[in-house]
Design a protein around this nucleic acid. Structure first.
Lengths: 341, 341
DNA sequence: CTGAAAGCGCTAACAT
DNA sequence: ATGTTAGCGCTTTCAG
């Protein structure tokens, strides 16, 4: 258990008979140090197995070079793409990442926020859980002037900076497409309408109906929690409708896939009896049968944009104060699950 | 931009006219401090918005209370379950987590290891990338006596502690099951045989063939990199075989799902023409058609076991020195994709 | 039960 | 180009 003693700049300095200041400067590649001394220092540091003590440095510098991320789930292509996008940008800029996930729970999200706050992240990127009731747990960041950017599930009131797609338009396009296929009784399966993404998609759905002279029927709106169990229940509810609906616009590809499976188990033909459009464009879309039409929601772009805006702000290049909403391009992808013609 | 000054124990101490030592003790809930002073301190700390400076504490304590995790991908049910298992255990024990992923790249894995080493994690949990050539990048941990536990993709030589399933047996069971269904020309689609998981499953596959008097045919072994493109190529290779194989044991559910799709596109019936068994029991298994038989690989257990062993070691309760290999229970799940009878 | 003081390893202002 | 030194916020002996 006897850990070898850590090598510090003092050890390097005394071995080389120079001051710690010079060592410190050299290690940061400060141009003021002569090439020769620098080389000596680097070589010895390498040989002695020196590693920077980040705690000492951060303690001194009062910044962590770390940015925190809170996501609502780890379990989807969309979220992992967002993370990949964030990582790409932050790594290039030399920032570290701490990733936390709330598992859709409000209390976990609060705990995550508190934790990252205490860890003193320099900035935060977050997507809200399904159950989140308010944004009080992010106030502490604001108070200390730690920038926060929300993406996907956001709260657009107040002066948060948010990165989103035009969910309203996407909902409209999906619904419009189904109507063009001749569908008239279109179910919308979605989740907690407190979340912007779901309420906006719902709004787009209603607008498309209205524009096509189809009256909105609230019985066709099904709200669930995006779990497999809930997806099955929602589908069963749909199957009990009379007359049967002829289409469903479903707010997430996983739920759509479960729904398709359940429909097929009940001898419903897709798209002939019921046409389906999902959301996200996860890998699963081309693995189910028929292939699932969906809205392409490019997570990698969302992640990159969120991270680069945050980092520019931290570096004093951009400013988030006046940037309120950033909208990422998205589009409808038509596959067999919705093609009646 | 003027960040409010951080509150320190000095501020609390002087406001209360006591010493910083007492404040420090109280904040750690040291029983030696009187209840009354403790309460005063807690209340004031709360009111002033005090937050512990982890850098100062860690600098002083020479430990980070953080454990690092390196995974080869974020993008599968299996890995996210492992992470959930790890998180559950570490959170309970009061440890923090830094999660890094190598995207199957050796150089990224080295970078991750170096980074976590410099961050001075107290322990490390890792699964190797597909391309990893050696374990040199973990030597530094060993040198500083930082415990490392490998899971899933491991190197069993040397004295690493590893958490795995009995891949050999799983490969045997999957193959045996296919043989019992009357299959004789069984393709095995897998990945880099340098990785224990794949070589062991391959070994089990060959043993099952041998035990049933079926000669091993190396033309039936297909190795790919687990990407969608590679999965399609592998399937095309399979389709060109003459005579056509009557089954495939595929080392990962995602690849199996792609393979099934490609086969169906080419008018092959599953399981009648070709029976399929995958590996992992990802959510996708019951979403594809027919439902995919697979090996249940319980990631959550793997994560919990790895984390609790690591933490016990850190707390001095258990010891990893003499624990070499921990085997997690796994089992074959039979669904329609392999049921010929 | 509480206080004084040293020191963890590093950076940066100031001095040379 | 290099050195001296104070101090970042905390923990922990040692002393009362």
């Amino acid at each position: 258990m006897s850990k070898k003693k850590e090598v510090t700049i003092y050890d390097i300095a005394s071995a080389l008979n120079i001051s710690i200041a010079t060592v410190s400067r050299a290690l940061k590649n400060d141009p003021v140090v002569s090439k020769r001394t620098k080389k000596k220092i680097f070589d010895l540091a390498e040989k002695m197995g020196y590693r920077t003590n980040h705690f000492a440095r951060n303690l001194r510098n009062q910044k962590t070079n770390t940015i925190g991320v809170i996501v609502h789930e780890l379990n989807s292509n969309f979220i992992t793409s967002v993370l990949a996008g964030i990582e790409k940008v932050t790594a290039e800029a030399g920032y570290d990442l701490i990733i936390a996930h709330s598992s859709e729970s409000f209390s976990k999200e609060i705990a995550n926020a508190k934790n990252l706050f205490h860890k003193r992240v320099d900035g935060l990127i977050a997507s809200l859980s399904l159950e989140t009731k308010n944004l009080d747990h992010f106030k502490s960041f604001e108070e200390k002037n730690v920038p926060v950017i929300f993406f996907d599930r956001v709260e657009q009131e107040g002066n948060n900076t948010v990165v989103v797609i035009d969910n309203d338009k996407c909902g409209y396009q999906a619904t419009q497409h189904l109507i063009q296929q001749g569908c008239k009784r279109i179910v919308h399966i979605t989740s907690n309408l407190k979340r912007n993404v779901y309420s906006k998609r719902f709004k787009g759905y209603k607008e498309a109906l209205a524009d096509n002279g189809i009256p909105y029927d609230e019985k066709l709106l099904i709200i669930n929690d995006l779990s497999e169990r809930a997806a099955i229940e929602s589908t069963m509810k749909m199957l009990k409708m009379n007359p049967l609906p002829d289409a469903a616009f479903i707010t997430n590809d996983f739920v759509a896939a479960i729904c398709m499976r359940t429909l097929k188990e009940n001898n419903i033909k897709i798209p002939e009896d019921i046409a389906i459009v999902g959301f996200n464009n996860d890998a699963i879309c081309t693995l189910v049968e028929p292939a699932l039409s969906t809205i392409n929601y490019p997570g990698i772009d969302v992640g990159e944009v969120a991270a680069s805006n945050l980092i520019n702000h931290l570096k004093g290049i951009g400013n988030l104060q006046n940037t309120n909403t950033i909208i990422i391009r998205s589009n409808l992808i038509i596959r067999k699950s919705s093609l009646k013609k």
